[in-house]
Structure formats: structure tokens, C-alpha cells
């Protein structure tokens, strides 16, 4: 399968790989939202951690990904896009934008969906930790 140049670039030089601590540590941090989506048996697990300041802006984002090159690129791209955005702005990111940016073929669209889900999941975790009601329920 031929990958786009952008996918290859993200695979070789992934942006913002890492975490803000072990799973136990970040579970206790109120300024960090954690989203883990996917499952090993499906061949894709994405972990997104976001650090949010008091103004509700995503100051930093880190990802880890078990998955194919497109999944790695989608999550790497997602961290680039959400850094510096407010929580509400980050929620407007759609998987179709990721598909377009990375030129993902149809069989890889689920990678972009997973990236969008990881953003929503991390923000939901942050909101839950801080007692903020989720504004709108989202569905796929």
C-alpha cells in the first residue's frame, strides 16, 4: 500500500510523542485529560493526553499509538492541531479534515475517526475530572 508523503513524514518524525506521566499519575491530575480509544484486537489503540490551563486552552498534547502508519500519522496530526486551541475549538475538528490533510485512502478512514474520538475522549475526561458538564452529546 502506498502512503502519502505526509503519512510517511509523521511516521518517521512523529510530533508530540509521549505522556504526562504513568496511567496512575495522570489519573490523579485535574489539569490533564486522557483519552484512550480503540482496542488491541482491532489493531489500533490511540492514547491522547492533553494539558489544559485555567483559561480552558490546551497548552500541550502528547500521544502514543499502537496502530498502522495512518493511525500514527492521524494521532500525531491531531496533537499538532489541538495545541493552543480552546477546548471548544478542539471539539470542532472533524475526522474528514484529517482524511483530507493526510490523503488517507477509504480503508484508513477509521484511523481518522479514532483520532477524532481520542480528542473527544480526552476532553470528556478533563471535564469529568473538573465537574464540567459535557456541553453537547456527540454521536457518530
Amino acid at each position: 500500500m502506498a502512503y502519502s508523503e505526509k503519512v510517511i513524514d509523521h511516521y518517521q518524525r512523529p510530533r508530540n510523542v509521549g505522556s504526562f506521566g504513568t496511567s496512575k499519575e495522570v489519573a490523579l491530575r485535574k489539569d490533564v485529560g486522557v483519552g484512550i480509544v480503540g482496542a488491541p484486537e482491532c489493531g489500533d489503540v490511540m492514547q491522547l493526553q492533553i494539558r489544559i490551563n485555567e483559561q480552558g486552552v490546551i497548552e500541550d498534547a502528547k500521544f502514543k499509538c499502537f496502530g498502522c502508519g495512518s493511525a500514527i500519522a492521524s494521532s500525531s496530526l491531531a496533537t499538532e492541531w489541538i495545541k493552543g486551541k480552546s477546548v471548544d475549538e478542539a471539539l470542532t475538528i472533524r475526522n474528514t479534515q484529517i482524511v483530507e490533510e493526510l490523503s488517507l485512502p477509504p480503508v484508513k478512514i477509521h484511523c481518522s475517526v479514532l483520532a477524532e474520538d481520542s480528542i473527544r475522549s480526552a476532553i470528556a475526561d478533563y471535564k469529568a475530572k473538573n465537574g464540567i458538564a459535557a456541553a453537547t452529546a456527540t454521536t457518530h
Binding site: V17, S23, A39, C42, K64, H110
Partner: peptide
């Protein structure tokens, strides 16, 4: 960059986690 590798190194059995699948 594998989250599963981290979990493994934290001593968590990845096969025992209940994953939220699509």
C-alpha cells in the same frame, strides 16, 4: 510510541483490560 508497551512496563496485563471498541 506504543501505549500498550507503557502499560506493559507499568505491570498492567494488556490482555485483561476491557477496551472500548467501536
Amino acid at each position: 510510541m506504543s501505549p500498550l508497551w507503557d502499560l506493559h512496563n507499568e505491570g498492567i496485563d494488556v490482555s485483561k483490560i476491557v477496551w472500548q471498541t467501536h
